[in-house]
Design a protein around this nucleic acid. Structure first.
Length: 216
DNA sequence: TTATCGATTCTCT
DNA sequence: GAGAATCGATAAA
């Protein structure tokens, strides 16, 4: 069962999600992405060091409630006043951990993804290259049509979602890891190399300049 | 090519 | 009331 993949904790699950296919059949039609970049977040009840970067680091709140829910479900949060981001919930029910899906390659429904991205952007300055369609957590959510009110807490392994792991494990030599992006302080530093991506893939989000994030 | 900055609103203290 | 798991336009080099 695919569900078992999510039953362990996020740090163990994260690299195994690379190469997996996530589909959402939403308004406008289905879009499928191949996952190329993820980050693990551990919360209350997970083993290992306290993770100061996690929304569920201290306790359950209204926002993070679905991180405590059953594995394989969605945790969707609203970010910086304008973006949504998708996590796949890990760990048994009652234990909070999740994997943030940062980037993916749109492998089906690219025309629909384009329409959603351009509608959100408003003024269309320049066409969006295909590899940028789902690059970055806010963009990936937009490409799939994910919003918090609609999709938070839903089962990712049942309609309107579908998830299929990659064909066998991604070869170890093509998995890179490093510090998480946009996380303040120690939790975003080398002590937490909890970001995983497929090395060399053009859809992996770039580190932002001027933020001091080291390039691995 | 690299760095800075503004937009925009929810969540928790 | 402060800060945030971001993005993209614009400026500088």
């Amino acid at each position: 069962m695919v569900r078992e993949l999510f039953s362990s904790h996020a740090l163990d699950v994260a690299p195994n999600l690379l190469g997996g296919l996530l589909t959402l059949d939403g308004a406008g039609g289905p879009v499928t992405v191949r996952i190329t970049e993820v980050e693990a977040y551990h919360g209350v009840g997970t083993p290992g060091p306290y993770d100061p970067g996690s929304h569920s680091r201290d306790r359950r709140t209204e926002r993070n409630a679905s991180m405590f829910g059953p594995p394989g479900h969605a945790y969707v949060y609203f970010s910086y006043g304008m973006h949504f981001a998708l996590n796949m919930v890990c760990s048994p029910e009652g234990v909070a951990s999740g994997v943030l899906i940062r980037s993916g390659e749109v492998v089906a429904g690219a025309d629909i993804a384009h329409a959603r991205r351009e509608a959100k952007r408003g003024t269309v300055a320049a066409p969006i290259p295909d590899r940028m369609l789902a690059r970055g957590p806010g963009n990936l959510a937009a490409a799939l049509g994910i919003t918090r009110p609609e999709h938070d807490g839903l089962d990712l392994l049942a309609a309107p979602f579908a998830f299929r792991p990659g064909q066998g494990p991604v070869p170890v030599e093509t998995i890179a890891s490093g510090p998480r992006v946009g996380v303040a302080g120690e939790a975003g530093g080398p002590a937490f190399p909890w970001r995983f991506w497929i090395a060399g893939d053009p859809t992996v989000s770039a580190f932002r300049p001027g933020r001091g994030a080291p390039r691995i």
